[in-house]
Simulated assay, not measured.
Amino acid sequence: MKSWRRSRPFWSGLLIVLAGAELLSIPFTLDALSVAILFGTVGATYLIALVMMIAGVLVWLQPGQRVFLGLVAILLSMASFVYSNLGGFLIGMGLGLLGGTLAIAWTPVSRPASRLDSLSLRDLPGAARKLVSSETLSRVGHWSRRGPASSRISASREPADPAAEPQRSPQ
């Protein structure tokens, strides 16, 4: 879920949806219903709130259209000041303006390149040298000279005196 949220303007979409829900909730309250009906713009209030909620969901689903949808949210928020009881008493308008500007300002985060993505053919020998250090190569060379059978024998018997152990000539 976290990777889904990071790959799109999640918070801006959430603020736009909340702005639309807040604008839609004002006409539905019993105390404000008579005030909204007296204004005669209840249809515009519903339209602005529903389009704003749809724009917020589309910001999530189509992040490539974030600039257009953010601009729509900003324009609807400014229109809600006139048509929807001072923009839902300035709360819905403020949420819509903030969500719209966040949608416009959001840019996709580029994934950090992994080690293999950033290598070119020219860098490959240097990367291989760094990956396999000289100490690792000396251990591998030492193991291959001894051989696995001699390492099992020397591990099974421990000489009491290290000077008493027979000296091997390097091959």
Rank of each mutant, 00 (worst) to 15 (best):
M1D: 14
M1T: 10
M1W: 11
R5C: 11
S7P: 04
R8V: 08
F10P: 06
W11T: 07
S12Y: 01
G13K: 10
G13I: 10
L15E: 12
I16L: 10
I16E: 08
I16R: 04
I16Q: 04
I16T: 12
E22N: 11
E22L: 14
E22C: 11
E22F: 14
L23G: 11
F28H: 12
D31S: 09
A32I: 03
A32W: 13
A32T: 11
A36L: 12
T41M: 09
V42N: 10
G43Y: 11
A44T: 03
Y46H: 07
I48A: 10
I48M: 13
A49V: 07
V51D: 01
M53H: 05
I54D: 02
G56L: 02
V57E: 01
L61R: 13
G64R: 03
G64T: 07
Q65W: 09
R66H: 12
V67E: 06
F68A: 14
F68S: 14
L71V: 10
L71T: 06
I74W: 00
L75V: 13
L75R: 01
L76C: 15
S77R: 01
A79W: 00
A79Q: 02
S80Q: 01
F81L: 13
F81W: 15
L86W: 05
L86K: 00
G87M: 00
G87P: 00
G88D: 01
G88R: 00
F89W: 08
L90N: 01
G92H: 09
L95E: 01
G96I: 01
L97N: 06
L98S: 08
G99P: 02
G100E: 00
T101I: 08
T101A: 09
I104Y: 02
A105S: 02
A105Q: 02
T107G: 03
S110G: 14
S114L: 08
L116A: 13
S118D: 11
L119W: 13
S120M: 04
R122M: 08
L124K: 08
P125Y: 08
P125K: 07
A128M: 10
A128S: 06
L137C: 03
L137D: 10
R139Q: 11
G141N: 13
H142P: 00
S144P: 02
R145C: 08
G147I: 02
G147L: 06
A155D: 04
S156E: 09
A163T: 05
P166I: 10
R168A: 10
P170I: 05
P170F: 04
Q171K: 07
